[in-house]
């Protein structure tokens, strides 16, 4: 099967510093894949390369077998690559409904239109309400985003990414900063993501990773250390060695 997302020999330097070193990753459609690694392993750089914020020094990125390596960020999104951010990137002054609606309108290719109002015809509202419902945000749809509790903002972050109806979704530390009690909500939400979406989870919380991922890539110093099932990764002495330096992963 053609991978939903694939990198071939992806390499990137910052000056003399090798941030991404010949990385090969392949996500089949519907994958539940996690990317882990200690601080400074190059996870953020890899996300920036995949989404088009950075252009790689060498190597290729394919989506559904098609080259997207030099493609602008917004065009990748329209090809079906969506992401969340490690630090919330929301519209604090808008409501969740307005935020998701404009994302839905974008996905429906309506956002170049300047004549009909955003809610025209009800199709946008219908889909936006459906997405908000899926993330348990229906009751908050009319509130100011900036006034929502952090955990719910985090859910909205995922909802916005999903509104683009991606084929590949990059989740950049979705549980970062979320209080212990609300982590289950996040996990439940990302577990309930549509099965046809390939998900790449970048996460520090190993508990979350092992409960979510079906396969894991371990990144160290910009290069892939190993790839395998959660059980294989957990058993690998090299991974243990890397993480012991950080004080273990549990």
């Amino acid at each position: 099967m053609t991978p939903a997302l694939q990198t071939l020999g992806l390499t990137h330097h910052f000056g003399a510093f090798l941030a991404t070193d010949n990385v090969n990753i392949s996500l089949p459609p519907g994958a539940r894949h996690a990317l882990i690694g200690p601080n400074g392993a190059g996870k953020t750089t890899l996300v920036n390369l995949l989404t088009g914020v950075l252009r790689p020094g060498a190597g290729r990125i394919l989506m559904g077998g098609e080259e997207v390596t030099g493609m602008a960020q917004d065009r990748r999104v329209r090809r079906g690559l969506s992401r969340t951010f490690q630090i919330n990137q929301l519209f604090p002054e808008l409501t969740p409904l307005q935020s998701v609606s404009l994302a839905v309108a974008r996905r429906m290719e309506l956002d170049g239109g300047w004549w009909r109002p955003l809610g025209h015809g009800g199709a946008v509202a219908k889909e936006a309400a459906e997405i908000l419902g899926r993330f348990g945000l229906s009751d908050a749809m009319g509130r100011r985003v900036g006034d929502l509790p952090y955990g719910r903002q985090r859910l909205l972050e995922v909802a916005l990414a999903i509104a683009a109806r991606p084929r590949v979704l990059l989740l950049d530390e979705p549980a970062a900063g979320v209080p212990e009690a609300e982590r289950e909500d996040i996990l439940a939400a990302i577990r309930a993501l549509p099965r046809e979406v390939a998900v790449l989870l970048i996460e520090h919380d190993m508990d979350l990773v092992f409960r979510f991922a079906e396969s894991i890539t371990v990144l160290v110093s910009g290069a892939v250390l190993m790839e395998g099932t959660p059980a294989e990764v957990a058993a690998d002495p090299r991974v243990r060695a890397v993480y012991l330096g950080e004080g273990g992963h549990d």
Partner: peptide, 15 residues
């Protein structure tokens, strides 16, 4: 999703 939510969303956007 419940129907009331959908209607509320539609009303809010139309409003």
């Amino acid at each position: 999703m419940s129907v009331p939510d959908r209607d509320a969303a539609r009303r809010q956007l139309a409003g």
